[in-house]
């Protein structure tokens, strides 16, 4: 089975994206999914988008480079967190 690649991006590529990346990693572990996570700034997505299967951001994404994208703001606020994590996992299982 090929590993899926997820881009996790926010404004800094460090702050909120770290929180989201950790939560996705944990959720994937539970599901026994092996994925590559690329963590970066929104302005850097362009450079990684080609090889990505999914783009997850905590900020506004203007151009999703033809890839599926999910807004993960709720992983930061904690409101509706489960639903978004489920959405991400089901996308990765495809």
């Amino acid at each position: 089975m090929t590993r899926k690649t997820i881009i996790v991006a926010c404004g800094t590529g460090i702050a909120t994206s770290t929180v989201v990346a950790e939560k996705i990693t944990e959720a994937c572990k539970k599901e026994n999914l092996h994925v590559n996570i690329i963590q970066c700034k929104v302005t850097e997505i362009k450079g990684y988008a080609e090889n990505a299967d999914l783009i997850v951001t905590t900020t506004i994404l203007k151009d999703n480079f033809g890839k599926k994208s999910i807004n993960a703001l709720s992983l930061i606020t904690g409101i509706g967190e489960e639903k978004v994590l489920e959405e991400i996992i089901s996308e990765l299982k495809k």
């Binding site: 909120t16 900020t59 506004i60 203007k62 703001l73 930061i76 904690g78 409101i79």
Partner: peptide
Amino acid sequence: KSFMQKRFAGKEFYIGLDSAVAVGHPAAI
């Protein structure tokens, strides 16, 4: 976070976040 949410979550409160969530906007970039 969960400590704060248990006590103060609800309609009349805003959740204060990092402005990293806003800087993806084309005008800001």
